[in-house]
Design a protein around this nucleic acid. Structure first.
Lengths: 266, 266
DNA sequence: CGATTCGTTGACTACGATCAATCACCGTGG
DNA sequence: CCACGGTGATTGATCGTAGTCAACGAATCG
C-alpha cells in the first residue's frame, strides 16, 4: 500500500527508537492518526508526527507501559499485541477498565497535574507508537491537529464508557459476557476478514474483573453458552457459532436465555 | 470581585444572547475556563472567549439543551442550576450518566460524525455559557487554548468514569449511595462554605437510575442511613450528621453497615 | 378537592457471590 | 519419560443482596 523503509525499526526487536518515514506498520491502515502520521509524512504542507514519534522496544507479557501516578510522557497507539488498563482502587484491589487492541489508542485518564490514573501492562508481546507530549508542544500546528483528533477520540471514549456503565450496572451476567465476546470479535477481526473465531489473550480472571463478575460466573457462562450452541470454547480460542443469538444477548440487556433453550440446541 | 456590566444578559431572563465583557457570573470564579474567558477578556495579548460565547435564555425544568443524535453545536458550561445527562439504551430505557452542577462542563460524549450520544435536560431553572464550535474554528489560537483545556477536562472525566465503573460494578448499594451523597455534597458546596447540608434537585428515580439501583432500594437506604444517624432526610434536603461514617461507606467498597450499628446509633 | 405522581415500606424471589473440591494444563526437574 | 507442584479453569452447593411485585402514604397540581 505504501513505500517500505530500508531499516526496519521496532517492534521487530531492532535497536532503533525512531522511525524513518515514509513507513507503514501493518496497523497503520487502521490507525486513526494516519492522516497526521504516515500519510502526512510524504507532504511538506501538512504537520506530521514523523520525526517525533518513538517506537520503544516491544513490551513483553506483564511489562508496564506506565503506572498509576507516573507523569504523562507519551500518547500510546498499539501497533501489535494487546494491552490491559487497570486502576488500583481505594481498597487495594484492581479494576480492569479497558483492553487496547491493534490500531487503537490507549485511553487518556489523567488526573490533575498530568499524572496517569491507571496502569497499563502488555498482555502479550506488544509494540507501540509513542508520541512524546513534551516534543509535541514545540510544534503548535501539529499539536492543534493532534488535539483535534484526541478530542474526538476521547469524546467517543466517554460515549463508550457511558454505554459500558449502563451494561455493567443493569445487564445480567449473560448480557455482559455476550457484549464482551461480540465487542472483542468485532475489534479483533477489524484487521483481518470478519471471522467467527477469536483468541482472547487475557485470563478468565481479567475478563471477570473487567465485567465486574466473579471468575466462576465467567466459567459457568462459557459453559452455558457452549451448551446452548452459541459458541465453541477451546481454552482461549472462542468460535462464535450463532452470531444472532450472541448479538441478541448483548443488545437486549435484561434479555435472558430461556431455561429450555439449552435443551433445544444441544 | 470584578467589574459588572450595565446591560445584564441571560440567564436572568433578558433577551440578550451575547455577553458584553468584562463580565462575571457568580460561577465564573469556579469555572475552569476563566483563564481564557473572563480573565482573558481584559487582555489584548491573549485569546479570549469574549465575543463568541453565547448565553441563551435560561432553561426550565425538563427543557432539553440537546438530544441524542443532534449535531454538536456548542460546548456548555453550567453557570446556574443543574442538568441531567442521560442516554437512550438499546432496549428503550434511559440511563442517567451524569449531573452537571454550577461551574462544571457538560461532558463531551460524541459519536463519529460529531453528534451527541446523550440527552441533556435541565433539572431546575438553568443558565449556561455556550461556546459555539463553528465560530471557535475561526480563531486558531483560541481553539488551541480551549482544546488544551478540554483535553485535560475529558482526560479527568475518563478517569472519573473509570472509578465510577468500579463503584457501579463492585460496590454494594450502600457504597453507591454513600459515594453519591459524599460527591454531591462536595461539589455543591464548592461554591458556598463547606456545609453539612445539601439539596438534591433530582428525583429518587434519577438517583436510582444513575447508581443502577431500584427506586425502592434508594428509599430503603435513605431510611437506613437516617436510622443509623448518618444523615437526616427531609424530602430533597439531606443533612449529613456523620461525615466520617459516610466517607467510610463511600471509600471502602464492600464495607457494610453492621446490623448492630443501627441499634447503637438511634 | 380529587387525580396523579412520587416516595416509602413489606414480602418474596432470583441472580450471582462465596466457599470448596476437582480437573486440566504447563513448565520444571529428576 | 513421568512425577511433581503450581496455577488457572471448571463445576457444585449454599447464601445474601438487591430486584420485583404490591400496597400504602405523602406531596403536588390542576
Amino acid at each position: 500500500m505504501a513505500a517500505e523503509v530500508s531499516r526496519r525499526p521496532a517492534p521487530d526487536g531492532s535497536r532503533s527508537a525512531v522511525v524513518q518515514f515514509p513507513f507503514r506498520y501493518f496497523a497503520c491502515q487502521y490507525c486513526e492518526l494516519q492522516d497526521i502520521c504516515a500519510n502526512a509524512a510524504r507532504r511538506r504542507d501538512r504537520p506530521s508526527l514523523a520525526g517525533i514519534i518513538e517506537h520503544p522496544r516491544p513490551y513483553h507479557r506483564g511489562d508496564h507501559l506506565f503506572r498509576q501516578g507516573d507523569p504523562v510522557r507519551y500518547y500510546y497507539v498499539v501497533n501489535s499485541g494487546i494491552t490491559k488498563q487497570f486502576i488500583n482502587t481505594a481498597d487495594g484491589r484492581e479494576q480492569v477498565v479497558s483492553f487496547t487492541l491493534v490500531g487503537e489508542t490507549v485511553s487518556l485518564d489523567y488526573l490533575e497535574g498530568g499524572r496517569h490514573n491507571s496502569n497499563v501492562t502488555a498482555l502479550d508481546t506488544t509494540g507501540v507508537c509513542a508520541i512524546p507530549v513534551l516534543r509535541l508542544n514545540r510544534d503548535k500546528q501539529l499539536k492543534a491537529a493532534l488535539a483535534d483528533y484526541l478530542l474526538r477520540h476521547t469524546a467517543r471514549e466517554i460515549a463508550r464508557n457511558h454505554e459500558l456503565q449502563q451494561l455493567i450496572g443493569q445487564g445480567t451476567a449473560e448480557n455482559k459476557l455476550a457484549y464482551f465476546l461480540n465487542d472483542m470479535t468485532q475489534r479483533m477481526n477489524r484487521a483481518s476478514r470478519p471471522g467467527d473465531c477469536v483468541v482472547l489473550p487475557m485470563s478468565r480472571h481479567d475478563i471477570a474483573n473487567y465485567l465486574c463478575l466473579a471468575d466462576e460466573t465467567i466459567s459457568r457462562l462459557f459453559s452455558r453458552f457452549a451448551d446452548c450452541g452459541i459458541i465453541k470454547v477451546n481454552r482461549k480460542r472462542i468460535t462464535i457459532s450463532d452470531f444472532t443469538a450472541l448479538r441478541a444477548l448483548a443488545d437486549g440487556h435484561r434479555h435472558r436465555l430461556a431455561d429450555g433453550a439449552c435443551l433445544r440446541d444441544c
